[in-house]
Write a protein that binds this DNA or RNA. Sequence first.
RNA 1: GCCCUGGUGGUGGAAUUGGUAGACACGCAGGACUUAAAAUCCUGUGUCUUCACGGACGUACGGGUUCAAGUCCCGUCUGGGGUACCA
Length: 988
Amino acid sequence: MEYNFKDIEANWQKFWADNKTFAAKDDSAKEKYYVLDMFPYPSGAGLHVGHPLGYIASDIVARFKRHKGFNVLHPMGYDSFGLPAEQYAIQTGQHPKITTENNIAVYRKQLDKIGFSFDWDREVRTSNPDYYKWTQWIFIQLFNSWYNKNTNKAEPISNLISAFEAHGNANIQAHCDDDVKSFTAEQWKAFTEKEQSDVVMAYRMAYLGEAYVNWCPQLGTVLANDEIKDGLSERGGYPVERKLMKQWSMRITAYAQRLLDGLDTLDWTDSLKEAQRNWIGKSEGTSLKFKIVRHPELVSGSQEMLKQVQHDIEVFTTRPDTIFGVSFVTLAPEHELVNRLTTPENKLAVDAYVTQAKNRSERERQADINKITGVPTGSFVEHPFSGKQIPIWIGDYVLAGYGTGAVMAVPAHDSRDYSFAKQFGLPILEVVAGGDLEKESYDAKEGTLINSDFLNGLDVKAAMKKAISQIEANGLGKGKVNFRLRDAVFGRQRYWGEPIPIYYKNDIPYALSDSELPLVLPEVDKYLPTEDGEPPLARAKDWKYQNEFDYEHSTMPGWAGSSWYFLRYMDPHNGLAFADKKLADYWKQVDLYIGGSEHATGHLLYVRFWTKILNDLGHIAINEPAKKLINQGMIQGRSNFVYRLSPAMFVWGQNDENEKVNLPVIFLSKNINDKLKKKELTQFELDNIKEKAITNFKTLNPNFEFLNFEENIYTSAIHVDVNIVSNDILDEEAFISSREEYKNAVFIKEDDDNYICGHEVEKMSKSKYNVVTPDDIAEKFGSDTLRLYEMFLGPLEQSKPWNTNGITGVHGFLKKLWRLFYQNDAFTITHDEPTKAELKTLHKTIKKITEDIERFSFNTSVSNFMICVNELTDLKCNKKEILEPLLICLSPYAPHITEELWKQLGHTESIAFAQFPLVNEAFLIDDSINYPVSVNGKLKFTLELPATLTKEEVEVEVMKNEQTIKLLAGQQPKKVIVVHKKIVNMVV
RNA sequence: GCCCUGGUGGUGGAAUUGGUAGACACGCAGGACUUAAAAUCCUGUGUCUUCACGGACGUACGGGUUCAAGUCCCGUCUGGGGUACCA
């Protein structure tokens, strides 16, 4: 019987589904193990070979843990709210729900083919009302809580309101908005309902606040920082600008320190923890007040005004030691004091600068990152120690949103201040010795303080201490910690997301009650914003709370549903709670979480944040969502390109400049294009291209001319579908018929008459036409081969380009395994006693595989299986006692073939729960050891010696060996090092 | 710029704690079986040198520590990913 993977795989997939083999038990005496994959967004392109990489790895662990006697939870679901379905809806009018469901059906079919051991009864979809009911419920929990700094956790908002009623807010220590004014209990009681609501809002964990957001006019939505690339929206590539908007936000900043501390308890990679640390961006320093002093030319009226409002500019610095190096103070253009500090003669320039800075889009800011701009206000502050007058400038290198929006500029020891000072000719005062200030600033935090009064002679560390104590003693400021982390905007002006469960009555937002959930996403006639810029939900007809009050019209962001889905899998059908407390306590946290590193700072920060809040509020017992996390590497695709002659070099027909005609379609083969780029084309070749171009274009427009053909000739690379290219040779016919505009395409080909495409390795994506689906491989070689091959490709965490070069080796291995059981169509397993050699091979393999899985080194286990089967083939082993345990070892990797052979061995139960074999070290002991003998560390020969010899006996044996004597040629070695059971080295 | 990762044959990669560098697989070359192909099997395959035995070199580059370095330390170059006027 041949290895017929097609039937075997189909049969077993059906068996697992029919028998619900992998359903996790909620009541089990077994220890639990929770293996989670980052669930996919079901895109229209379907699953590509990169998706299963992580899924296969987690499936191996899940199956392994089942063999090891764990009750395994290994679920899968879909992150099914998202922009692409909505974009598609806008273009076609098809409801995103339909698109999403279709895509999910495709994903499911593809996933099923690979033989994953998911518990499909627990599938979740974030766009399902049964699911998002609880996303909304969690939102309300956040809406109804505040962060108490005294207890250092989130607490119900009712506590806070009681406190207000009893004592006002004087004793409240909370993470809240900065501009909260203090009030007494009496004042609180006298507030109107609206006023009370506004006050409480400043404390809520989910709150409505004014925030600068990344606004994308074309998409009509707010984007998260991680949705923007180079100042353009990641999806669509539209410009993004900064805009002040009322937005629902999450007070994640309250958790900054705990999110940072929690990292130490996690078994995550250093790079990932580092990425989170950088994102949170803790910096310790000092706040410091600079007294504003009158500029001689400042009119007295202005000075009076100044007195009324504020006397100081507060800055934040991490370098209080450099205080004597301050040569100017810079404010962000948005700083509230800008207007008041500007002297009349500077007003024009300042106003112009502020307006320009405000209107500058993110893209321009990024593009001009090295362009230094700024204006002086004309006012001065006083140095807190020297009393010297210091000018106040405005510069957009200072960010309004960080620190106090003002910096003390120390150009000698900060590179940004340095460039600014150089640009505007401001003084550079050296206060830490050691740098060359002619060339650049000296930013290092080491050296001796100079020109610094009471700090002179101290090193930076000591100076820092002393400066802080002096600043604090003089009441100028105090030690302070700043975080880069910003509160997370939680609303989008979009349709395809969870409605925010809020309605407005007299302009006051109220949360729905639990019994009113879910607030179902209403139907709309179009998926676009309304004419007056309201989000699409404003289009919904008769969609009002109690037929009277407006609901919130924005929806939740993409990360809402994914921030808690790991909890829903524990109890996916519960209608009374997001998860039953008992079940949540049983499954606790994810033991192993596998997914892509692109979620390092987004999803993984939010899911930790929500876990901590739910823990604070007493809903779950865990503090962190996932104990161990692995980032699988990206599988890159190999894209192909054609090189199209640019139309810019043609001029249109004389009759009408704007005449729309089809563009010429002339494609240069790769080598010709390379020559063109290097300007190595011969006149003959150029003429040939020109002639073909003329012929091609004349069919479209008889009246055209070239515009300086030879100077202007250039090409642009265009992605071409890899499926119509083989070995970089283009299938020209397929290409011509692939698009209407290519029907007259002309190819300038290589000497061998082929059109050669360019290629590049890059991210696999639909838009690059380089997606390879796992389907073809599964069809041609079977999914066991696919599973083994994806693991064999290299370390899980490493990115690698997809290629199928080695797949025959892996497939051959499975065939070879099959032949251990079947020879000449006969099943030939015997019950004979195994030999010592066979047992050694088996137990060596068991040991290696167990170790490999535990350290997630799946590529090496595949090699180890190959070695094992090679050895057993050489030994002609067909013994049940050897092959049966081997099947169990292999079953996590290649579940179908092992199930089948397991059944052939006479088992009636699935192999999935068979106990994983244990290593018997006794079989691994060698009788003899092959000692490498080296001289000065260089290997000379090897010597086989009995394993029973002691270290001393080994030395004696080696020294009296003929080869040693020959090597030493009468010399006496200075030293002989014997590492017992390892190596012998002689030093001469 | 900063942070994180890598750099090993023609290729993917192995070497878990400093102890025989290149496991396993692909590719390539030669051979067996076959009318032929596929499939399968066998042999060889880091580089240089030698008829051969053997020898020399070799883990991006330059140094160092060590009896012994792909592995540890210092410096340089370079691929990939993340991130940024964060004071």
